[in-house]
Design a binder for these strands. Sequence first.
RNA 1: GUCCCGUUCGUCUAGGGGUCUAGGACACCGCCCUUUCACGGCGGCAACACGGGUUCAAAUCCCGUACGGGACGCCA
Length: 475
Amino acid sequence: MTVITRFPPSPTGFMHIGNARTALFNYLYARAKGGKFVIRIEDTDRARHSEEAVEVIFNALEWMGLDYDNTPQSQYENRARHAEIAHALLAAGKAYKCYCSPEELEKMREQSKSEGRAVAYNNYWRDRDESEAPKGVQPVIRIKSPLEGESIVDDVVQGKVRVDNKQLDDFIILRSDGVPTYMLAVVVDDHDMDVTHVIRGDDHLNNTFRQNVIYDAMGWKKPIYAHCPLIHGADGSKFSKRHGSVSIEDYKNMGFLPEALNNYLLRLGWGHKDEEIIPMERALEIFDIKGISKAASKFDFKKLESLNAHYLNAADNDRLVDLISPFLKEKHNIIISEEGLTRLQAGMDGIKERAKTLIDLAAESRIYLVDAPFPYDEGAQKHLTPAAKTILKEILTELKALNDFNHEDIEHKCRNIAQIKADGKLGNVMMPFRAALAGTDKSPALFEAAEIIGKPEVIKRLEHAIAYIGTSASH
RNA sequence: GUCCCGUUCGUCUAGGGGUCUAGGACACCGCCCUUUCACGGCGGCAACACGGGUUCAAAUCCCGUACGGGACGCCA
């Protein structure tokens, strides 16, 4: 049997992190088993549908690197097929027309709730003759659910889950305007697409019992179900917008790498022994539904960050240059020049191991991209004191004298200055030097950085820092 | 309210009757390294929700309680 999994997002305008994880699990399972991974857009709700919202989904999938096998289907396009099944069920006496108005249904809901009953609809039209139908009312079609006994869903993650059939109502499969409901559409589409495994959030577990009513009525083979626990926010409830960033786009914009997010999502609610760093290639080898845990998990930003730091460090330098360009432009108004690019490539190893996100990386890379004069931030200003001015002048003189501008000689000079002019404390030399070169008090290893920046520009930056202290010393 | 599901360090998890004085990772706290921050190295803190069973033996199996979550739409 060829495994076929599917990802059926509804176009909400963003890719929720929980949906992304579901997509990941489906993708991995299909690929790990040599099967197929297919996409279906659940767009039967026309009021909410928009092309842009669909785009967002595909962009997210592409960014995550989840490729799929079929031409993505539109559920809405299949509505004629869904309606056909609804009418077949009607003709077979397994479904019936219901003429109740929304107001009547609302009343029933209130009443059943007050009586402590599970099911809202009271099966009013289940055995009623159509001759009693009110004039001018377009009916919905409801399916007949079993009245007695119990139903069982044998779930790969949840185990055997049973429910009393009294909990199941005669739910609507075709709306009064002839548009199929989600419940009908998923079943028909999953069947038509030969889906073998349904891996989804456990907020669908209860729906499964209803969907199975349709499978049974049609005599269709049911797929294997795997209901994964949801991702929660820090407060323990379903991860939603009020918890902060929930969409894939948000994480991309915060400077996370797709491989880091994938690894994090994979480990959230799934585990394999002690393994933490699990790139996709590895995931393909070891992923199995059996590793999915039954309990919901909370999203931990710090852990994501640490994973991101790992993948950032492992990433190719040219790729990183490309990835930080948009951040440099947006946040620092920097366009990488040819000279800057050369320096950045030389210095990338030194900064990527320090960064947690692409935003960090972009900020750190500025030391290689800016030309003096540039402003000094608060941290830099603390070190650009009158006392530091003497030191900087000394550095300037010594470095100017260097013919071969390499980091060993630069270090040698700085250590000398520390001995003679700064009570032997290298920090007293380095911090002003750092402020002068970086414009801030944080930077990669300075001797190497200075070598990469090159003598002319280092001299220029030192001169500007000295001039800056001259003008700001009075206040 | 009704039904369903869950509960191992702060967080993600390993564990599937004895090898558990419960392992790893992130976070946190020390120390070392050191030119800031970070990285790295070493060490530390810290959990089987509770109560009953079953068993020679339970984190692991069963029941109950508590707490948490989810579902109850002509949304998906």
